[in-house]
Design a protein around this nucleic acid. Structure first.
Length: 283
DNA sequence: ATGTGTTCCTGTCCGC
DNA sequence: TGCGGACAGGAACACA
C-alpha cells in the first residue's frame, strides 16, 4: 500500500500526537510481523519520550529519549491510527481492539496509536539512534527523491548500461528511495516513457525529465494525503484522495488522461507486478 | 553483477 | 451462496 506519500502523510498525522510525549504503555499483541519483534520491545518503549518523528523512504523512525529509535514499516496493508486525541475539534474515544490490531501505544496524555496490519508484511524494530542509518533495512537505500543526492547526473549514472526495464529500475529502493508501483506508473506516464524501455536506452533528455516529474508526482500526492485504494488510511482515519488524480494506475481499459490522446490505458505484467501505461503516449 | 520468479499473509472481487 | 482463482500499495530471498 503505502509508498512515500502515504508514509509521509501518516508521519505528519502522528507527529503532533507523539512528539514530546512519553509512551505510557505498549501493548504488543503478537510476537511478530514480517519478522519477530525485537527483544523486550514493550519494556524498551515504556516510559520513553518521543523526541522526533522522521521518515526515511517508506520507514517511519521515532527517536526516543532512551537513545533508541523505533522503526516502523507499513508493508502493504499497515495502518497507524490515532484515537483518544483531539483531532481538529473532535475528541476520539478509544475503540475496542479490532482484528489485526498488533501493537497499541498509549501516550501520556491519553492519546493512543494503534498499528493495524491485516497482511502482516509490515515490520517494527528498535536500534540505537546513532546506528539507525546502518540498520540492515536502511543501509542500502538510495537517496531521498527530494534530496540533493537525487539529481539528473546521479540518475543518469545509475541507469547507464542497465538492461533492466525502467519500471523495475525506479522500483528498486537502492536506486531511489520511496517510489512504489503506483507512483512509478504515474511518473512514467508523465515522462512519456514506456515501462518496458530498458533503463540504459534512455536518452539524456529523457533522464532529465524524470527527476522533476518524480518530485512533482510525489509532492502532489503528499498534498492530497496519499492514495486510498483498499487499506490505506491517514493517521486520523481519513482517506487520501490522490487516487482521483491517477492518469494510468488502475485505469486499464479507460481512456488515457492526456488531453486529445484518446487511446486506451493498457496493462502489462513486469516482474510479477502490473504496469499501467498508455500505448500511444508512452514510448 | 543482473534480472526474474516466488514467497510471506489476509481480504476482496469476479466468474461460474 | 459458495468456491476457486486472480489480484493487491512491499521487499527479501532463491535462483538462472
Amino acid at each position: 500500500m503505502p509508498e512515500l506519500p502515504e508514509v509521509e502523510t501518516v508521519r505528519r498525522g502522528l507527529e503532533p500526537v507523539m512528539t514530546g510525549h512519553r509512551i505510557a504503555r505498549a501493548d504488543i499483541r503478537r510476537p511478530d510481523l514480517r519478522f519477530p519483534f525485537p527483544a523486550q520491545m514493550a519494556e524498551r518503549l515504556t516510559g520513553k519520550r518521543v523526541d522526533r518523528l522522521r521518515r526515511r523512504s517508506k520507514y517511519i523512525l521515532a527517536d526516543l529519549s532512551s537513545g533508541e529509535t523505533l522503526l516502523v514499516h507499513l508493508g502493504m496493508s499497515g495502518r497507524m491510527l490515532i484515537s483518544g486525541a483531539m483531532i481538529g475539534s473532535f475528541h476520539h474515544e478509544h475503540p475496542a481492539p479490532e482484528k489485526h490490531d498488533h501493537v497499541v501505544l498509549d501516550l501520556d496524555d491519553g492519546a493512543r496509536v494503534t498499528f493495524n496490519d491485516a497482511r502482516r508484511f509490515g515490520a517494527m524494530d528498535l536500534m540505537a539512534t546513532a546506528e539507525a542509518e546502518a540498520h540492515p533495512l536502511l543501509a542500502s537505500l538510495g537517496p531521498e527523491p527530494f534530496g540533493n543526492g537525487f539529481s539528473e547526473d546521479y540518475l543518469a549514472g545509475r541507469l547507464r548500461g542497465r538492461a533492466t526495464p525502467i519500471k523495475a529500475a525506479l522500483l528498486d529502493q537502492r536506486l531511489v528511495a520511496g517510489l512504489g508501483n503506483i507512483y512509478v506508473c504515474e511518473v512514467l506516464h508523465r515522462a512519456r516513457l514506456h515501462p518496458a524501455r530498458s533503463a540504459g536506452s534512455l536518452q539524456s533528455d529523457e533522464v532529465a525529465r524524470l527527476v522533476p516529474l518524480i518530485r512533482e508526482v510525489l509532492a502532489e500526492a503528499i498534498e492530497a494525503g496519499g492514495s486510498s485504494l483498499r487499506d490505506y488510511r491517514q493517521a486520523g482515519g481519513e482517506l487520501g484522495y490522490f487516487q482521483h488524480s491517477f492518469r494510468v494506475y488502475d485505469r486499464e481499459g479507460q481512456v488515457c488522461a492526456t488531453p486529445g490522446c484518446g487511446a486506451t490505458v493498457g496493462r502489462i505484467v513486469q516482474s510479477g507486478r502490473s504496469s499501467f501505461f498508455c500505448p500511444r503516449c508512452q514510448s
